[in-house]
């Protein structure tokens, strides 16, 4: 027989639902007690997560090795050839040193970004059941990290610090559907808004309908007031395709992020921006195609020799 429920049961459900609605209202209104509850939980959980990260890492590495077996072999081959190349380059170091001195002068003139950063290890990846893309890092307010700070990897933008706790911080990845950032295109300086899509690809929408965007254009962070949440000039990704729909008000394009969010291990949080905007100085250099050596072979057909004839 199906459960019909009684008044006491109904009252309990109503009380619980009302309580949860009260929590939502209090949280949305920014009541300190609710914020404190979450912060307190995170402070208490941080050591447990660090232990979990340490305990799970061998298993995770094993899984990663198994999944990337073919790639690892290719990488080994690539590293071997790179090693040989580096040996050769080391021998040419004296020549390179002289060139480097000249190059340094040029680079100093052009200026570099000069961000002050705090390095951190990724200790947890956000649960996808909440339809968000986040990571947790093992550095927090004690290391000078505050909310709304830019987070970088070796390749470019990773995301922004959403919440900072004493020894950890929650980072919203650039791939998160709720992520928005003002961007500009390197070179042309056209501006637009990039939004995450839940994958390694983002969508950039230009603000001006008279400008053009092309495949291969590099997207950089435009920067925010006082460089928070975003410092200017950080490379974000490269345009992979452009939507040229005739009815569209503004142009949109797909952007592939430089950072691979699924393999993040070490990240850096920008705690202090450069004194001046680095502009396009951080645009990664385009890979140059290696010329293939070619050999031209000339072949001439053999001339037929007269065959001797038999005489009687």
């Amino acid at each position: 027989m199906r459960y019909g429920g009684d008044n006491r049961g109904r009252l309990l459900i109503i009380v619980l639902v009302v309580t949860s609605l009260l929590f939502i209202t209090l949280d949305l209104r920014g009541v300190q007690v609710i914020d404190g509850l979450r912060t307190g939980t995170q402070t208490a959980l941080s050591p447990v997560q660090k232990f979990g990260s340490w305990a799970v890492s061998p298993f995770r590495n094993f899984l990663s090795d198994v999944t990337h077996l073919g790639r690892t072999r290719n990488q080994l081959e690539k590293l071997k050839s790179e090693n040989d190349k580096l040996r050769l380059e080391l021998q040419n170091r004296e020549v390179a040193d002289a060139q480097l001195k000249q190059l340094k002068g040029v680079l100093d003139l052009a200026g570099t970004a000069g961000f002050k950063v705090v390095n951190a290890k990724v200790i947890s990846q956000g649960s996808n059941t909440s339809f968000t893309q986040t990571i947790t890092i093992d550095a927090g307010t004690t290391s000078g990290i505050k909310s709304n700070m830019t987070v970088l990897s070796g390749y470019g933008l990773v995301g922004v610090v959403k919440s900072a706790y004493s020894t950890s911080a929650l980072v919203q990845l650039a791939s998160d559907p709720g992520f928005r950032i003002g961007v500009r295109i390197a070179g042309t300086q056209q501006i637009g808004i990039l939004s995450g899509q839940g994958t390694r690809k983002g969508v950039v929408q230009l603000l001006d309908n008279t400008t053009l965007i092309r495949k291969g254009d590099v997207i950089l962070a435009r920067g925010s007031d006082n460089s928070r949440p975003f410092v200017p000039g950080v490379p974000i990704g490269e345009v992979t395709s452009v939507d040229n729909s005739p009815g569209a008000v503004t142009q949109t394009a797909d952007v592939k992020f430089y950072s691979n969010f699924s393999t993040l291990g070490i990240v850096a949080v920008v705690v202090s921006a450069a004194a001046s905007d680095p502009r396009d100085a951080l645009v990664p250099p385009k890979p140059r195609p290696t010329p293939l050596p070619t050999v031209t072979i000339y072949a001439t057909p053999p001339t037929p020799s007269p065959s001797p004839t038999a005489t009687k």
């Binding site: 459960y3 429920g5 006491r8 049961g9 309990l12 459900i13 619980l16 309580t19 949860s20 609605l21 009260l22 929590f23 939502i24 209202t25 209090l26 949280d27 949305l28 609710i34 509850l37 979450r38 939980t41 995170q42 959980l45 997560q49 947890s124 956000g126 649960s127 909440s130 968000t132 986040t134 947790t136 959403k162 919440s163 706790y165 950890s168 929650l170 919203q172 709720g178």
Partner: peptide, 26 residues
Amino acid sequence: PEIGALTGFGAGIGMDLSQTSPVPIG
């Protein structure tokens, strides 16, 4: 059902307190 609702309430609070939960508590 009553225990189910109470269980949901307790587990829901836990999920809301999760560091990776971007939504308001509740």
